[in-house]
Design a protein around this nucleic acid. Structure first.
Lengths: 119, 119
DNA sequence: AATAGTGGTTACAAAATGGTAACTAATGGG
DNA sequence: CCCATTAGTTACCATTTTGTAACCACTATT
């Protein structure tokens, strides 16, 4: 079909960014951690409709990608605190501008009511 | 489980933005249209490994969300030109900063080689 | 009459993602 | 001995997303 395949670092980086944050829960989780660390249980409470399994998965992936830091305390019952890394913090203004873009570009009626969490 | 569900316009807007651009192909397509309009066939060439079907779907959705404009010319063989709307253009600096974030945060080895297209 | 070119559509399949419910380990308190 | 608490894990299922390959409509050219 004669397709051109040439390296484009900008596009590649963008694809990578989307792999890291572009799914249903990750941007929300990052936003929730914006104001400081939270325990697993709090993240679960503040992200209604997410399941334990999926929350665990998402947190693990964010940790692998260096966005968040997982701190486990040797206590019983267990305590685990999640917080943003420097990479993660660097994302915040970008997520904020994405959020702002929506508010500038669409009126409320255009995006279905979405009831999520605040701190 | 005692979950708090409170409206948070920032998170809602972010979720909406991700619904609009956060998938495998859309950010790439927006990027490809950054420098002007392109025909269907060119978009297909410049986005290797995307299929006609999926390209059509993605373009339709971007059009519905007001990101791109589809202009059909009454010619034979058909000609269709896709270009960014104002909403779409407003996304470009944000996508650029996401791309930049990756380049600042990861070294090349960390994200697997991704061969995509340039214009 | 057959073929090429463009921008699709259709039926179907595979893969990725997200969700449910039950279960676990470790320990303190009643 | 039983229960509560926290941060998970496990097996299984459902939904969503993405991909493949064949087909179509319209006209010009050979």
């Amino acid at each position: 079909m004669g397709r051109k395949v040439i390296d484009n670092p900008n596009v590649c980086s963008l694809v990578h960014a989307m792999n890291v944050i572009g799914n249903k829960w990750k941007p929300i989780l990052i936003y929730l951690l914006a104001n400081g660390s939270l325990r697993f249980g709090k993240l679960l409470m503040f992200t209604p409709t997410i399941s334990k399994k999926v929350l665990t998965e998402q947190l693990r992936e964010l940790e692998e990608d260096g966005i968040i830091i997982r701190k486990k305390y040797a206590e019983i019952p267990p305590r685990v605190e999640y917080s943003l890394s420097e990479k993660g913090k660097a994302l915040l203004p970008i997520l904020k501008s994405l959020s702002q873009w929506t508010q500038d570009s669409y009126n409320e009626i255009e995006f279905e009511a979405c009831r999520i969490v605040t701190l």
